[in-house]
């Protein structure tokens, strides 16, 4: 049935300029008036996986080695691996071809569990500081790294990908149900810094630059 559509829990009030249909998702590549940044991009259509098992060391998802230490992340081939704890890793598909989900039963597709957004550009951490007490600028953290903690009062996974001035940015997931209120919260906090919704193209461009 061709009119079956998938909808993200993230909705921006901006007007799409360019979009494409991918799978059954309607993906906005660019919005009108995206401005100078910082930007907020909805990535909820991108695949996220949960990998859980007692012996994570034996697993090499997509040929990538899982970081040994919890809260470390690794980005390779457009895939982000975040070591969550002793037995669990989250896998985000950031860029490139669609992801084939491994058949082993230790993997669960959790794309639908969360919303997935990126916040990047100038003053990203000034925005974060209004919503979370987590220290994104701590000297002991090497990018990319994972925070599992509260952001706008909701437990989130936040991965800091880059901390270099205008290239700074994070990607964030939280329970899909909180989508609307989370986006409202982020946009409200970002207002004074000019935070603007942007399309996927701007994200792809950023991710390829860092």
């Amino acid at each position: 049935m061709k009119d079956i559509k998938r909808y993200s829990a993230v909705e921006f009030k901006a007007t799409p300029l360019k979009n494409e249909t991918r799978g059954n998702w309607d993906v906005v590549l660019e919005y009108h008036g995206e401005g100078e940044g910082p930007w907020l991009v909805d990535l909820s259509h991108k695949t996220r996986l949960d990998l859980q098992c007692a012996d994570l060391a034996a697993k090499k998802p997509f040929g990538i080695t899982i970081p040994e230490i919890p809260c470390r992340s690794v980005m390779e081939k457009g895939i982000l691996l975040n070591r969550m704890n002793r037995i669990q890793t989250s896998i985000y598909h950031l860029d490139g071809e669609t992801m084939d989900i491994p058949a082993e039963k230790e993997y669960t597709d959790v794309t639908e569990s969360t919303i997935f957004v990126a916040i990047f550009g100038n003053n990203v951490f000034s925005i974060c500081e209004k919503l979370s007490a987590l220290d994104f600028a701590g000297a002991d953290q090497q990018t990319p790294f994972l925070f599992q903690g509260p952001f706008s009062h909701v437990p989130c996974q936040i991965v800091t990908l880059c901390r270099d001035a205008e290239k700074s940015g994070v990607v964030l997931t939280c329970s899909r149900g909180y989508g609307k209120h989370m986006i409202d919260g982020i946009l409200h906090a970002g207002e004074e810094f000019g935070l603007t919704p942007a399309g996927e193209a701007r994200f792809t461009n950023w991710i390829n630059n860092i």
Binding site: D50, Q52, C53, A54, I87, Q88, E106, T108, V110, T111, E112, S113, T114, S175, R176, G177
Partner: peptide
């Protein structure tokens, strides 16, 4: 024990 729990509350 060795078991994995995945919360799919919001997924479905």
């Amino acid at each position: 024990w060795d078991f994995a729990l995945v919360n799919l509350t919001d997924a479905m």
